[in-house]
Amino acid sequence: MAGPIAGDGAEPVNGFDILDKVASLPVSTWRYRWEAEDVRHIGPMSQDWKRVFGLGDEYEGIYCVDAKGISLVSIQALHRMITSLQDQVVSLQRRLDEELPNGPAKGQKAEVHAA
C-alpha cells in the first residue's frame, strides 16, 4: 500500500479476526448534540471503535478509510466462509448421492430444513 499518499509499514490483517471484532462491536442509533431531537444516525461510538480495533482517535470520530478497510476485509472473510460452506455442501451432496442411490433424482437437490 506504499505510494505517494499512503505511508510505509503496511501489514496484512486476518479477516476472520476482524470479522469477530465486527461482531462484538456495539452499534446504536444516536445524534450529534447540535442536531434536532428527531435526527438519528446509526453506527458505533468512536470510543468503542478505538477499544475494539485500536484505530483512530478515541474522541475524534471514526476515520472513513478505517471504516472502509474494516468493511472490505470483513466482506472478504465472509466471502471465503461462504465459498468454503458451498464447497462443503457440494461435497456432502455428492456423498449423499453415492450413499443413497434411490435418493432424489439426479439434478434435484435434497430439501434442507433449518432448525
Rank of each mutant, 00 (worst) to 15 (best):
P104A: 15
P12K: 07
A110C: 07
S74D: 03
D66S: 09
K68P: 00
G3W: 06
A115C: 08
G3A: 08
L85V: 08
Q88A: 11
D87T: 09
R95M: 14
C64P: 03
F16N: 13
P101H: 04
G56Q: 08
R33L: 00
L19M: 12
N102R: 08
G43W: 02
T29G: 01
A105R: 15
F16K: 10
L72C: 06
L25Q: 02
M1G: 15
M45L: 06
R51F: 01
A67S: 13
K21P: 00
N14V: 06
Q88V: 05
R40T: 10
P26S: 05
L72P: 00
L78P: 00
L100Q: 09
F53T: 06
H41M: 01
G56Y: 03
P4I: 12
T83W: 04
Q47P: 02
L100E: 08
E111Q: 14
V89S: 07
G69V: 01
L92T: 12
W34A: 00
M45F: 03
P12N: 05
I75M: 07
P4V: 12
G9H: 05
W49E: 03
G3S: 14
P12H: 02
E37T: 02
V90E: 11
N14I: 04
T83P: 00
V112G: 02
R80S: 10
D20F: 03
K109A: 09
G61V: 09
P104S: 12
L25K: 02
R40Q: 11
A23E: 14
P101K: 12
I42Y: 02
Q108D: 10
L85E: 06
A36T: 06
I18E: 01
